[in-house]
Structures are given as C-alpha cells and as structure tokens.
Design a protein around this nucleic acid. Structure first.
Lengths: 162, 162
DNA sequence: ATATTAAGGATAACAAATATCCCTATTTTT
DNA sequence: AAAAATAGGGATATTTGTTATCCTTAATAT
C-alpha cells in the first residue's frame, strides 16, 4: 500500500508555486525540469490539482500554474486527496455476510465493526494531514535549506515564470 | 492506495480464533468456509500471521491455527502489519536532489521535510491501530451480533476445531 | 497405512501505477 | 495575421503489484 509518486510531485510543486510572486505563473516544463521529472506525466498531477481547484492556470506562452489560495489556507490533505483521491485505505467486502450460520435474509445495516475501526485509523491519518498547511512546510524549508540555494532556486524560478 | 484484502481476512480470522477454547485449533478450510473465501489464497494470509508469530499452528488432521497470545495482548497494528508489511505509505524519491541550482556534490543527510510530514501521518495511522486490541473488537462484536447468531457461529466453529 | 494438515514454490490472470505520444483549443509574442 | 508555447485530455503501452490457483513436501492424528 503505497501512495502514488504523483503525490510527492504535487507537494513539491506546490512548495515551489508558494514562492511565486503575485499574478505570475510557472509552466509544467519548468516544474518538471526543476524536479527532474517526466514532463508529460507530471502534467497529469498538475491537472489533478487544477481539477480540485487548488491551482489556477493560464494558456499560451508565459502560461502555467499558480496557487489558487494562500499557502496558509492550503492543507496537505487537500493536495494529497487531489491526486490520490478520497477513498479509504480499507475496503470492507462484508465477508461476515458469508457466515453460514446467519439467518436467511439476515443482512446487517450497520457497517462492520472491523471496518469502522480501520476507518478510524484512516481518519487519524487524514486529521494529521489536515493539520499541516503548505505554509508550515515553507517555513520548515526556509530554515533548513541553505540561504544561497534558496536564493538561486528563487531566481531560477523567476526567470521562467510568466 | 488500498490495503490488501488479506488484511480484512486476517482480522476476521483472528476474531474467530479469539473465541476458540484453550488448546484447540481451527483449520484454513474451516476459516475459508466460514467467511466464504478462497482456501488456498486465505492460506497465504494465515501463513503471514504465523511468520509474524501471532498464531501457533499444528499439522495433521485436527490441525490448524490458534492465537499465540491473549486477545487483550494482540493489537490491530500487529495483525495489519503481519499481512501488509511495515513499509510506509509515502516513499520519498528525494526529487529535491534534482534541483538544478544545488551545489555540485551537495547532498543532504536529513530526510526531506515533505517526507517527514507524510511519515508523521503514517505514524498517526499506526498509533490508532496500535491502540485497538483484538479484545476490543470481540467486545464490540459480542454486543452487536444477535446472541443466537453468536451461539450458532460458536457451535459451528467448535464442531470443526481440532 | 491413510487421510489431513500447514508451508511454500511456481505460475497465471487481473488490476493499478507509471509513462509516453499525440491532438485540440487557447493565449501570448512576433 | 502568423507563429510559438501552453494546459487539457484521450489513447495506449509498459511495468508493477494484487489476486488466485495448482502442486509438492513434511508433519501429524486416526
């Protein structure tokens, strides 16, 4: 049970977009080059972000992506779910219904207790991701990454931002 | 990102094994029939539980499985990890290392901040599963399942327990 | 002896993730 | 007006992982 690699890509791309000046856009090409990712496939992840309304896009030269809201208003959960979907990790196939001892026609309405417990764990995972905002990541990165690398990366992005 | 169906099977099987009288064993065949599952494939899940040391086995007629510890000492996490493995849901491919602006030879030692956050969510998921014991599930089931169905199921299992 | 069991190797069928290619409509730049 | 660059998305491989079955072996109870 592993998350799609596009989740990782989307998170890193959002971190870059968070540093983009107001009103400017960064293309798939630039984001792919910056992260060393296949452009066509990364495009799918960015489309997911777009469909979820997390980023705005423009066409044409100097077109690309920018965040649709402030980094402080964008949670990890939103980004992860945009790419990975909102389905639970545990799927209940209701095997208790196969119990040969059950009364004929007996079919429970309430979800299986096993499933409920597993879903609570899923919720704990979501709660954690919902509690972290993109701005939290930016703050950590700005402390951890050497300032010269930060500056050069910022300049690199600005050169390519339409 | 979906858990293996064997996780569901293992949890339900452990719930049945928890009701087994001391010193008795239940076979793959019986567990598969009770849950309406393919015997050969369910066998793989039970082997995982065995390799993890969560169940004991015996061979020959009247052989099968029993829990290796009391239901109060067996957590959901142990069962889930026995089948699903202990790997994290988020895999960091360290794409930050592809940053064209990084200094040559510059290679960070610390894990990527994105990965650390995602791993914290994984830990929250694990923490929740670690907090639930098999005995908790048994208690819920004994309250929710009609007592006549419980009795018949118990008798069904006892008939087949070696 | 015989029948039954767990364990595990080999392999096939199926589904999902990963990746690439190509076409279209739109928008900026020239 | 023409050209170039962009997002969006459909089609389609390729690769990997899950699901499932079959078969052999060693151990054990009857």
């Amino acid at each position: 049970m592993i998350l799609k690699s596009q989740v990782e890509w989307a998170l890193h791309c959002c971190a870059i977009l968070a540093g983009l000046p107001e009103g400017r856009y960064l293309s798939t090409k630039a984001l792919a080059e910056f992260h060393g990712l296949p452009k066509e496939y990364l495009s799918k992840a960015l489309q997911s972000l777009s469909q979820a309304g997390l980023v705005h896009t423009t066409l044409g030269p100097s077109g690309g992506y920018r965040l649709a809201k402030a980094p402080a208003e964008l949670t990890f959960l939103e980004i992860v779910e945009a790419v990975e979907g909102r389905s639970r990790t545990f799927v209940c196939t209701n095997i208790r219904a196969n119990n040969p001892c059950r009364a004929p026609g007996y079919c429970e309405e309430t979800p299986c207790a096993v499933a409920r417990i597993m879903w609570e764990a899923d919720e704990a995972w979501r709660d954690k991701l919902r509690s972290v905002r993109l701005s939290d990541l930016i703050e950590i990165l700005s402390q951890e990454i050497p300032s010269d690398l930060l500056k050069r990366s910022f300049a690199w992005v600005l050169e390519r931002a339409g």
